[in-house]
Amino acid sequence: MSTSVVWGTTAFAAEKTPEYFLDTMVVTATRTPVEAFKTNANVSVITSKEIKERHYSDLSEALRMVPGVYIGNYAPAGYDNSNALKINGADEIVVLVDGVKINNVSNRVSAVMLKNMDNVDRIEVLKGSASTLYGSDAKGGVINIITKKPEKISTYFRVDGGSNSVTNYYMGQSGKEKDWSWDANVSRNLSGDFKDGDGITTPSSSKSTSTNFKITKKLSDKHELTATYDSYKADYKYTALWEPALKNGKVDNQNYKFILNSNFDGNTTNVLSFVNLDNDTDFNAYKTKTNTKRITDQLSTQLGNHLLTAGFEFSHDKVITFNGKKMMNRAFFLQDQFDITDQLKLTAGVRHDNNSGFGKHTTPSANLGYTFNN
Rank of each mutant, 00 (worst) to 15 (best):
L190M: 10
V166K: 14
V100L: 09
T9L: 05
K217H: 15
E313L: 12
R158V: 09
Y238G: 13
E177M: 14
A77H: 11
E53T: 06
K289C: 00
G197A: 10
T211I: 08
A331T: 05
R122C: 03
Q335S: 08
T288W: 04
S60W: 11
S48E: 11
A366F: 01
Y370E: 00
S129K: 11
I143P: 00
G8L: 02
D297E: 15
G349E: 03
G192N: 10
T341M: 08
T226L: 14
N279P: 03
V125D: 04
F264R: 10
G249D: 07
I200G: 09
E177P: 01
I215N: 01
G369T: 07
G140C: 05
P203K: 09
S205W: 06
T167W: 15
E15D: 09
T269F: 06
G192H: 09
N270P: 01
F312L: 08
D121I: 07
G324C: 04
D282P: 01
M65P: 00
G357A: 14
A75L: 13
W242T: 13
T309H: 00
A62R: 01
A285F: 12
P33M: 09
G249I: 07
N367C: 02
F322R: 13
M25T: 15
V275E: 05
S48M: 05
E92C: 12
D196A: 02
A29K: 04
F312H: 07
P203S: 14
G68E: 04
K237I: 10
T268R: 01
V319L: 12
T209M: 15
E50L: 03
L133Q: 11
S181R: 11
L246F: 00
P33G: 14
N119K: 10
T3L: 12
